[in-house]
Design a protein around this nucleic acid. Structure first.
Length: 110
DNA sequence: GGACTGACGCAAG
DNA sequence: CCTTGCGCCAGTC
């Protein structure tokens, strides 16, 4: 923490910019914040997203394959899929259906 | 300072 | 399509 801006802050802001009905992957976010290969760091940052304000829609962040790997870190693990389906994102077996269609690229859209 | 871990990504089989 | 192995960065022990 300190040194002006943290890597987490950039990640949180970017994730917050994800529109409803869309999902993004860790790699794209990592690259958007300056870490092309820091996908793991993005996931690690999400680990503390449940205690920040404003809250971060971590449920819109999935793996590059569209797999809801982070579901286990939610209060109820199924909440992640519920939220996605609630926003119109088709999810099957904890995997985002038509992921390339709902995929939101921060570098391209932003 | 070294080693292990983790909500990952990609290449190859 | 799914599984395995290696590499990536940051944090903690």
């Amino acid at each position: 923490m300190r040194d002006g801006e943290n890597i987490y802050d950039a990640i949180y802001q970017l994730v917050r910019c994800i529109p409803p009905g869309r999902v993004s992957n860790y790699g794209a976010i990592a690259k958007a914040v300056g870490m092309a290969s820091g996908a793991r760091v993005v996931g690690y940052a999400m680990n503390g997203c449940h205690n920040i304000n404003p809250p971060v829609p971590a449920h819109r962040v999935v793996t590059r394959n569209g797999l809801l790997t982070g579901r286990h870190h939610f209060s109820p693990p199924e909440l992640m899929q519920q939220l996605l389906e609630q926003e119109g994102v088709r999810v099957e077996d904890f995997k985002v259906v038509d992921f390339d269609k709902v995929f939101w690229d921060p570098m391209k859209e932003l």
